[in-house]
Nucleic acid binder design. Structure first.
Lengths: 178, 178
DNA sequence: ACCCCAATAGTCAATAATGACTATAATGAA
DNA sequence: TTCATTATAGTCATTATTGACTATTGGGGT
């Protein structure tokens, strides 16, 4: 949640924007970096307002529906830098949903496990291709770093999964249950 | 959230347990695999009850406070296998909180960025040591796979962060803003 | 002139997750 | 014995997140 605030503040630091604009940008350019949804962005912006980190005011252009324009306050700038330093300097615990499944491997037959993991491997490889072919420099250097970071993890995952599949194939012990 | 249900069902598959027991086990043995909190486990168990996947009944031992014992139903078993197959066969999108910070690197001076990232690197290395020295076979092969998986990602992260730090040091362009 | 659809700009009720809290029993130390 | 800890077993109010929904407008086709 914290990093969602950081993202929104970072975007508002460059220029004031209205909600739709922020969400469009996130959807179009940052879908590989965050999965924050529209309504979460609005809720987070409201919280940032309550905390005094951004100002909100209505604006009307022509006779289009009125828009909420969000602008950084100076307290917000301070908070942005605080959060940024916190974010860059800390390695927070990662958790992988797929590890839960791995825990219960032995409840399925070896054959089925192999089929399932190979399907996962294919999807991973598709993701690798998507990230590898992502266009460069949409929003400064930082996004490229993030994409690269993702690729590193995806490739590590592919290698690991290969190894697991190989070991399960080689494993001549018993066949699992069910 | 889905993987939390999977975890609880998986634990209940082996034997019926009361809430405290489940939470103790998760805290003591699975803290490296999940970060689910006690209250989340109880809430999830309630939802699994409502869905008919587990039965709940009270039990009293001596004059200790009564306990809620959760037991898998046959619908629950089916659901467990469905979720397990789903979990093993799908590679869900990973998201890293730290990527958000990377996006805004250029708002800090190069010198400070290096200091912050080096601090992160140290923490990562501490985490690597913790996972590398984790005792084996607490709960079957699966947990070991999960620990190994974590290690792979942690090491990939260390390598990447090294590379980033190196590149930022080499980069003789300008010094960032602020 | 009229209609449909994509783009614009959000709202809201429902769900999920957690921190802080409650309450009792056994245990060991002073 | 009495008192403080720790272990046992949860509850609940608050916060966070999201899917589904509401409305309006501009523009293109016919």
């Amino acid at each position: 949640m914290d990093e969602r605030s950081l993202l929104l503040l970072g975007l508002l630091l460059v220029q004031s924007q209205h909600g739709y604009q922020l969400n469009e940008f996130i959807e179009r350019n940052l879908s590989r970096v965050t999965d924050m949804k529209k309504s979460t962005a609005y809720a987070t912006l409201d919280r940032l307002c309550d905390a005094g980190f951004v100002d909100k005011h209505m604006e009307q252009e022509g006779n289009r529906p009125p828009r909420k324009v969000y602008a950084m306050t100076s307290a917000g700038k301070q908070h942005f830098y605080d959060m940024l330093r916190e974010n860059l300097s800390h390695a927070d615990q990662m958790n992988f949903a797929s590890d839960i499944g791995m825990m219960f491997l032995d409840h399925l037959s070896r054959k089925e496990v192999l089929k399932l993991l190979e399907s996962r491997l294919h999807q991973l490889q598709t993701q690798v291709d998507a990230y590898a072919s992502a266009p460069k420099h949409r929003y400064g250097l930082g996004v490229d770093f993030a994409i690269e970071h993702h690729l590193v993890h995806l490739r590590a995952d592919v290698t690991w999964l290969h190894s697991i599949i190989h070991r399960i194939k080689e494993d001549e012990s018993d066949d699992g249950i069910e």
